[in-house]
Design a protein around this nucleic acid. Sequence first.
RNA 1: UGCCCGAUGGUGUAACGGUAGCACAACAGACUCUGAAUCUGUUUGUCAUGGUUCAAAUCCAUGUCGGGCAACCA
Length: 569
Amino acid sequence: MSNPSNTNPAAPAPSDFIRDIVAQHVAEGKYPRIHTRFPPEPNGYLHIGHAKSICLNFGIAREFGGICNLRMDDTNPTKEEVEYVESIQADVNWLIAGWADKELGLTPAKAPFYASDYFDQICEFAVVLIKKGKAFVCDMTPDQTDEFRRTGKASPFRDRSVEENLDLFTRMKAGEFPDGARVLRAKIIVDAPNIWLRDPLLYRIKHAEHHHTGAKWCIYPMYDFAHCLSDYLEGITHSICTLEFEVHRPLYDWILENLDLPRALPHQYEFAKLIPSHTIVSKRKLISLVNDKIVAGWDDPRLPTISGIRRRGVTAEAVRAFAYHIGVTKYISLTDVAVYEHAVREDLNRRSLRRLAVLRPIKVVLTNYPAGQTEELEAVNNPEDENAGKRKIPFSRELFIERDDFAEVPPPKFFRLKPGGEVRLKYAYIIKCDEVVKDAAGNITELRCTADLDSKTGGATAGRKVKGTIHWVSAAHAVDAEVRLYDRLFTEAEPEKDGRDFKTVLNPKSLELVTAKCEPSLKDAKPELRYQFERLAYFCLDRDSAPGKLVFNRTITLKDTWAKEAQRA
RNA sequence: UGCCCGAUGGUGUAACGGUAGCACAACAGACUCUGAAUCUGUUUGUCAUGGUUCAAAUCCAUGUCGGGCAACCA
C-alpha cells in the first residue's frame, strides 16, 4: 500500500506544513469543525495539478473529521460554461469515490456549491462597505485605473459621498451603464506597497448571461471579493490555494475584517502547485493540442487531464497515492513523472489480472506436437492476490510468440528463444528452436520448434531449468484486439524550457497502434477491470470497444531492465 | 523596479536548536515458469558568507539564485 492512510488506520497519516497548522487548530479547539473547499473555475477541464489540490483539501477533511465543499468559482460569466461544471463534478466524484465521499459537502439540493448562488449576499456586503465609507464607485477607464494603481495615485472619484456611491452602485446593478463604464472599488490605501491593497476592484459591469444565474445580473464580483465571502458564507475554516494568491491574502483578510462579521473568519493558506515533468498543464496549451488534433480530445489518454488519466486506465487510488508521495510545500519544484509512473505501476501490479497476449506476433510451429490437439492449461490470474483465482488457456501445435522474444543473432545475455536454444512457454512446455523459415525477402515467417513433451508445468521434467520464460498465444484460439500503445507525450522533461515551443518536442511515438493476438478469455474483458499482459504492460478496455471489437489502452509498461541492458550493448 | 515567497543528494520530501532520514531514480547482487514483483546492498545532499549558541539544515544579518504579483481573469 503506497498510501498507508488509505486503508490502514494504524499507518501514519500524511504530514505537511498545512496539516500541521490544521492539527494545531484542532488541538486548540479553534473551530467546531474543520471545513475546506475545492473551488475550481468552470472554464476548463481538471488536470493532475487539480488532483493534488483535491487530495489535499478532501484529505484534510477526511483526516480531521471535517467537510470539504466542491464549489464552482463562477464569477466571470464570459469564460464559464455548464460543460465544464459537469466535467469537474464527474472528475471530482471519480477521484474521491470510496475515499472521501462522506466528506463531500453538498448544498441542500445535493448539488455542488456555486459562488454565483451568493451573488445577492455578496452584493449586500458591497452595500455595507459603501455605507461604512470603505468602498466607492469609480468612473475611470480601465487604462486610467491601471495607470493610477501602478503609480499609487488616488482616483478622483475616491471621495464621493456615501449617498452618491449608493445611488451609483444601485444604478450599476440596475443596468443603467454599459460594460466598463464604472466599477466598485474598495477604499484601502492608494499607495500601499502591496498592489492588491491599492483600492482594488470589487465589482465590474458585464452585461452577460451567466451559466448558472442566467440574466439576473449585469454586475459581477471580482475574485477577491467573492472568494473570501463565499468561504465565509460556507463556514470554511481553512481556505487552501496556490502560491500566486499569497499576495492577495491581505486583501482577503481586509474584506472579511471590515464587514463586522459575527462568525469565525476563514484563513487562507498557500502551497506550491504541482509541476509535472514531460507534460504541459496550461489550459491554453492543452486546448491547442486538442484543436490542432495532436491529441484526440480532452480525454485523450496522453493528456494529464483527469479524464485522460482515467481513460488511460490509471485508478483514482493511484492518483491519490501519487499525491501522497509528492507532499505539500511552498517550494516550487518539478516533479519527475517517474514518481507518478511508480504510483501507477504499484497500484496496477496489485490489482491487475494477468493475461497472455502477443503484440507483434511471430508464428511458431511445434513439429512434434499432434496437429488438431488442444489442451487446456491452468494459469494464475494474479500472483499478488490468491483470491483472483485461476483460468484455463488453450494450447495447440501452432502458436504466436512475441517478435522481440526471438533473435536469430542473439545479443549477449539474451535468454529468450534463439536458433538451437531452449525457452519455456509460460504455463506450458519447454521448446527448442530447430529451424528459422524465411520468405524470399529474408523476413522470418515461421519458427519450427520441438517441445519437450514431459516438461509441461507439473510434468516429469517440469523442474528442468531454462533461463527464459516467454508468453504465447495459441494461433487457432487467439482473438484479435486493437491495442493503443500510449507513451509520454513529450520527449523532454520540461517541454517549454528556455522558451522553446512545446510542439517541437512532441514524442512521435506517443501513440502506436497494433493488432494483438490475445488469449480467448480476453473476449470477456470488462471496462472496470485492469489487465497485465504478462511481460509487457498494463492495459484497460477502452470505451471504443464494442461487441466483437476489443480495444485496449496501454496504461503503462512494465519496468524493462532488459531493454536498458540491450541498449547498453 | 516595488512588494511578497522560497532554497536539504540526480528528483521530490522529512528532521520544529541535539545522530541529516524516507521515497523515486540510478547502480550491484539474490530470487524468479513475468528480464515484472519481491528481497539485500551501494552511490550522491543542508545555496554562500558572517553572527548567536556548549551545539545551527533549523535562529539572526547580508548576499546569490529561483519564483509569484503589479488583469474590469481566477
